[in-house]
Write a protein that binds this DNA or RNA. Sequence first.
DNA 1: ATGGCCCGTAGAACGGGA
Length: 260
Amino acid sequence: MKLATWNVNSLKVRMPHLLAWLATAEVDIVCLQETKTPDDSFPAQELLDAGYRSHFAGQKTYNGVAILLRDGHVGPARDLVYALPGLEDPQKRLIAATVDDLRIVCGYFPNGQAVGSDKYAYKLEWLDALTQWLRGELAESASLALVGDFNIAPEDRDVHDPALWAGQVLCSAPERAAFRSLLGLGLVDAFRQFEQPERSYTWWDYRDLAFRRKMGLRIDHILLTPTLGGTCTACDIAVDLRRLERPSDHAPVVATFPQS
DNA sequence: ATGGCCCGTAGAACGGGA
């Protein structure tokens, strides 16, 4: 069983890449962020034709999240949640579902723009609401995966130039503390359970040849409850998708498990 | 060097991203 998360930066633009990837990657659960697609124009039929059932919470222009389920490989989605409970928020940044025995939470965490800005305050509020809500979810689910674009680089080794980014948004102490609070709920960072190449990142700026120069950040994550983490056999970044023509600025993260 | 690039909404630049 493979579980993936990918910030597509516009589903409409990235559909060819997504469909080509789904055709070969054999991913069973795919969590998407920044679909930028209203629900009434979500390409559900096209994805169904490709073998995936869709659940989504979208809006025009900004944000938007989705969960794709590989038909015939994983069961139907239950107990769907389309917004972060406990927060009045018109922005579509969270979708959750239970599939077979797995609770899946897919989030597009706020970017925060700049430390000290209104958007930064909103990011910290959002993180706090998520943490509080997850406490209850974890009490009910032994197997839970929190995945998505966290917009947080948890440690300096997740940053191409820690000195340049020190204290900046995505790397600031309060954001990293919020990330550790999520781990403190009883979650493990699937990626760090395994030996990984140096300079492993999931996002690279479109500008400045950042990808070619390996100037990136690791801000997309898969966090797992401990037992689930114990069964995970690999966690990798699908860097090849960042090499394509007209790519997303993010690459997918994929966690592998024994047969479900 | 505080921008470079990309996306959506526009139907020209601009906000937002990270």
